[in-house]
């Protein structure tokens, strides 16, 4: 019993160190920004616009990807086809490759001098230096989080429930929308939030495709490069507050939904 308590103390100490490692820089960020600089940053039109653009682009990337990613996740969860593992590996590629490399890879596809870029231009899409490009880059690097979470959630829905629904006269599409999707929804929602979060914080891929208009991570980098740490810190602090508020709201909504479902 005593050795067990000692072990707990050692683990608590080690855990405390890692928590300190996460919290210290974030708290330091606030402490190093004066209230005046924070207020003037809130009133700075460029910062406000960039935060708005970041939130909008991350949301657009998440919603648009969801339409394609959720059906794929369902297939991956339910069917064991040839190449299944290969597809799972490909899906996780954007997470493991450096994000600047991801941006370069994307640029090769959408740049106006490539064949595919020309084709996209003819269809009316111009991703370079446009909000559409930001959405594309954010989606590319963050969609694996949604696919993985949704796949796991679909896999956790008992196949027997789907079979029961089929024998009760429902079409496969109806089974998907009335049984599989509602039962997997909690996990999918977590995946959507993770994707949104990852999209919002993206820098590497976006900076290659669309330096302008500036999303907040690029604005922070710009301020740091052009004016130094003191000018970058308040923007970073405000962006952190905004992301925290957004996530607290999303978590509250998700938890409320979970409580209602229980």
């Amino acid at each position: 019993m005593r050795s067990f308590q000692s072990l707990n103390l050692v683990f608590a100490f080690l855990g405390g160190l890692i928590l300190l490692f996460i919290i210290a820089p974030l708290v330091g960020l606030f402490l190093s920004s004066s209230p005046d600089s924070l207020i003037s940053t809130i009133n700075d039109e460029e910062t406000v616009k960039s935060i708005g653009l970041t939130l909008w682009a991350a949301m657009a990337a998440t919603v648009l990807s969801a339409f394609l990613a959720i059906p794929l996740s369902y297939l991956l969860a339910r069917k064991n086809f040839w190449g299944h593992s290969l597809i799972m590996g490909i899906i996780n590629l954007p997470i493991v490759i450096p994000h600047t490399a991801a941006g370069i890879a994307l640029l090769g596809i959408v740049a106006g001098n490539s064949k595919s870029g020309k084709f996209l231009n003819q269809l009316g899409f111009d991703f370079i230096g446009n909000p559409e490009g930001i959405v594309l880059a954010m989606a590319f690097v963050s969609v694996p989080f949604l696919i993985t979470a949704a796949k796991e959630s679909f896999a956790a829905v008992p196949v027997k429930l789907e079979k029961a629904a089929l024998t009760l006269g429902a079409s496969p599409l109806r089974v998907f929308f009335t049984i599989s999707l509602p039962l997997a929804w909690r996990g999918i929602l977590s995946g959507l939030i993770m994707m949104f979060a990852r999209g919002m914080s993206e820098f590497g891929a976006v900076v290659i495709i669309a330096y302008h208009p500036m999303i907040t991570p690029i604005l922070i980098y710009e301020k740091f490069g052009a004016f130094g740490l003191k000018y970058a810190q308040p923007v970073a602090a405000i962006f952190m507050i905004v992301t925290l508020i957004v996530f607290i709201i999303l978590r509250i909504i998700t938890n409320k939904k979970e409580n209602v479902e229980r």
């Binding site: 027997k160 079979k163 024998t167 509602p182 039962l183």
Partner: peptide, 14 residues
């Protein structure tokens, strides 16, 4: 027109 009741009932929990 064949109905099946599964082991453990397979009622929809939601």
């Amino acid at each position: 027109k064949i109905g099946i009741v599964f082991q453990n009932h397979a009622l929809f929990p939601h």
